[in-house]
Amino acid sequence: MDDPKTPNAVSSSPPENRNGFVEQKTGGSATTLVDGDRLEQHGDVHECFARIAALWTAYLKIRREPAAPLCAFDAAEMMSLMKKARKHGGAANPDDHVDDVGYAAIAGELAPLSFFWVP
């Protein structure tokens, strides 16, 4: 997964100076959040985002019309996938399940409005 020769490869390797960049750009508030509460809640940020990227990459490949522009339905589906990825790192968080169900329900509401809906 970390093959630099593969275009758009999903990497779980942290950059050497992530905190230095974040500290500089946010005055430290984002680092405190990412390395504090969110680290405990969602696990390592690099691993979490690598899981999200892997699921989104798979979704984009298998969606009904992979070349079509994304629509609101796709966004809801992908947000549900983000919640699924978060459930697999860090502490157990019941809100991830509630949010996941909420995003799935929104996708269900949006499906008839999407370009591929066939009644």
Rank of each mutant, 00 (worst) to 15 (best):
I52G: 12
V22D: 12
C48L: 06
K5L: 10
T32N: 15
P7H: 00
M78T: 13
G43S: 06
A72V: 10
P14Y: 01
E40V: 14
D3C: 05
K25P: 03
P119Q: 10
K83Y: 12
P4R: 05
V45D: 11
E23R: 05
L55E: 00
H42F: 15
L113V: 07
V101P: 00
R63D: 03
A75N: 12
E77D: 05
F21R: 15
A67I: 03
Y59W: 09
A105Q: 00
E40R: 06
L39F: 13
A68R: 04
P94I: 00
A91W: 02
A85E: 06
E16M: 14
E77P: 05
E23W: 02
F73H: 12
P15R: 12
C48Q: 04
S11Q: 02
E77C: 08
F115I: 05
I62L: 02
N8R: 00
Y59K: 01
G102K: 00
T32K: 15
P4D: 00
A104F: 00
C71D: 15
P119D: 06
Q24D: 10
R38D: 13
L39C: 10
D96G: 07
L81F: 05
T57E: 11
P15F: 07
A105W: 03
T32P: 09
L81N: 04
T6R: 11
D2T: 08
M79L: 12
G28H: 07
S12Q: 03
H88S: 13
R64W: 04
S11W: 04
N17E: 14
F49L: 13
V10Q: 01
K84P: 07
A85S: 09
F73N: 08
G90C: 10
P94D: 12
A72M: 13
A107H: 04
A54D: 06
P4Q: 07
P119K: 09
R51A: 08
A75R: 09
V22Q: 08
P69Q: 07
P14T: 04
D99G: 05
R38M: 15
A68E: 02
V101S: 05
P4K: 08
H46N: 09
H46Q: 06
D35R: 15
Y103G: 00
A58H: 08
E16V: 14
A85W: 04
D99I: 13
S11G: 00
S114I: 02
F73M: 04
G36E: 15
L113F: 11
A91M: 10
S29F: 09
L81R: 06
D100L: 11
D3S: 04
T57A: 02
D37I: 13
M1P: 03
D37H: 13
A91F: 01
N17M: 14
L70K: 07
A91K: 13
E77Q: 08
A68M: 04
A53H: 06
E109T: 12
R64L: 06
G36C: 13
D44I: 02
I106G: 10
